[in-house]
Design a binder for these strands. Structure first.
Lengths: 176, 176
DNA sequence: TAAATAATTGAGAATGATTAGCGATTGTTG
DNA sequence: CAACAATCGCTAATCATTCTCAATTATTTA
C-alpha cells in the first residue's frame, strides 16, 4: 500500500463526500515526514504546525486525526501516557507493534508478523472481520533497570512480578 | 500464581506500608467473582458495589484500582471505549488478549502464549524488563458483518481496508 | 459563472473521565 | 492509650477530547 499523495487523499475523501482542505493536507504531510518510529499526540501535532507557521486550530486537529484514523490513513495508538498518539497507518507488510517503558515512556517499534497472523486466525475463528491489531508491551528500559529497578521504580509503580518468569523457564527447557 | 485471599492481599499491602481496608477487600472480591472474560470500568465497579449495598466513594474506587494495578493485582485495559477497564491480573499461564468489536464493543478474551513469548524475546533483545503485554485486536463482529459491513459501519467508522488481506493470501500459499 | 447546498473551520463552551486537596476517620506502632 | 500515618469521602480542579455555532470555503446545480 503506497504512501498517500495529496491526490490520492483527495480521491479517498471525495469518494465519501468529504473534502481535501489545506489543513488536512498539511496534517498528512507532517505524518509523512515524521521519522520512523515516531508518533504524535494531537497537542504535539498542533505545536509542530504552529512552529512551522502553519497553525491549525486544535479543534480541527482533533477532528482531522479522528477522521483520518477512521478512514484508515492514520493509526490511533493507546500507549501508556494518558492521551492518544497518531502515526501513519501502514498495513502489512509495514505493520508493527510497540515496546514502551512505563518509567520514561520511551517507545520502540518492532515488527513481528506472526502476531498479526495469530490475530487474524483468532479473528476469523470468531467470525469477525479484522481491522487492526495493536500489541503494546509494557516494560522497563535498560536505564531504569540500571538505576536499580524494581526497587527504584517511581513510587506510583510498585509492580514487581515479572509476568513471564515461568514462561521463560519453560522456554529454556523446550528450546522452542 | 494463586488467586489472592484477603490475607495475601493484606500481606502484599503491608509489605509496602499500605493497609488492607474494607473497601479494598470488597473491591478485590468483586473482581474475584467476576465471570471469566469480564472486566469493569471504575464507574461500573462503583455501581456494582452500590447495588450490593456496599457503596464506596468514586474517589476511593479510582484510587484503589490504580493502586492495585500498580501492585500487579489488577490489570488496566485500554479497550476502545474511552475509559479504562480493569480485570484480575492473572499472569502466565492465564495471560490472555482481547478481541474487540469496534461497532458494539463486544469483547472476547483469547489465549495465545506465543504472543507473550515473542514479546518477551523482543523485550529482552532491547534489554528491557517485561511487565505486561496487551494485544488488542480491533475487528467487526459477525452481527455487524451480517448487517452489511463495511457499508453499514457507523458513520464515524469508515475504514474499509482489511489490514491483513495480503497476509492472508501469503498464508494460503505457504500454509505455514 | 453565479446561486444554492453542504462540508469545514476556528473559537470557545461543555463534557466526561480521572486526579487532587482537605478535613475527618481509622489502622498501626510503641 | 497516645502519636503517627494511611485512608476515606466529599468537592473542586484538571486534562483530553468533543460539541456548538457563526463564518468561510468547496462543490454542485441551474
Amino acid at each position: 500500500m503506497p504512501p498517500y499523495t495529496s491526490a490520492s487523499l483527495k480521491a479517498e475523501l471525495n469518494s465519501r463526500g468529504w473534502r481535501l482542505t489545506p489543513q488536512r493536507e498539511k496534517i498528512l504531510h507532517v505524518f509523512q515526514n515524521l521519522p520512523r518510529g515516531d508518533h504524535l499526540s494531537a497537542e504535539e501535532l498542533h505545536q509542530v504546525l504552529e512552529e512551522r507557521g502553519e497553525a491549525i486550530s486544535l479543534s480541527t486537529i482533533y477532528r482531522s486525526v479522528k477522521l483520518m484514523s477512521r478512514m484508515g490513513i492514520l493509526r490511533e495508538l493507546e500507549l501508556a501516557e494518558g492521551h492518544k498518539h497518531y502515526e501513519l497507518n501502514q498495513p502489512y507488510p509495514h505493520h508493527h507493534h510497540h515496546l514502551v517503558c512505563i518509567q520514561c515512556n520511551k517507545t520502540l517499534e518492532f515488527k513481528n508478523d506472526s502476531i498479526l497472523k495469530h490475530s487474524l486466525k483468532q479473528t476469523e475463528k470468531e467470525g469477525f472481520q479484522l481491522i487492526d491489531c495493536q500489541l503494546t508491551v509494557m516494560a522497563v528500559c535498560p536505564e531504569a533497570v540500571r538505576m536499580g529497578w524494581p526497587s527504584a521504580l517511581p513510587s506510583n509503580w510498585a509492580c514487581t512480578r515479572v509476568v513471564a518468569e515461568r514462561l521463560q523457564e519453560e522456554e529454556k527447557k523446550e528450546d522452542s
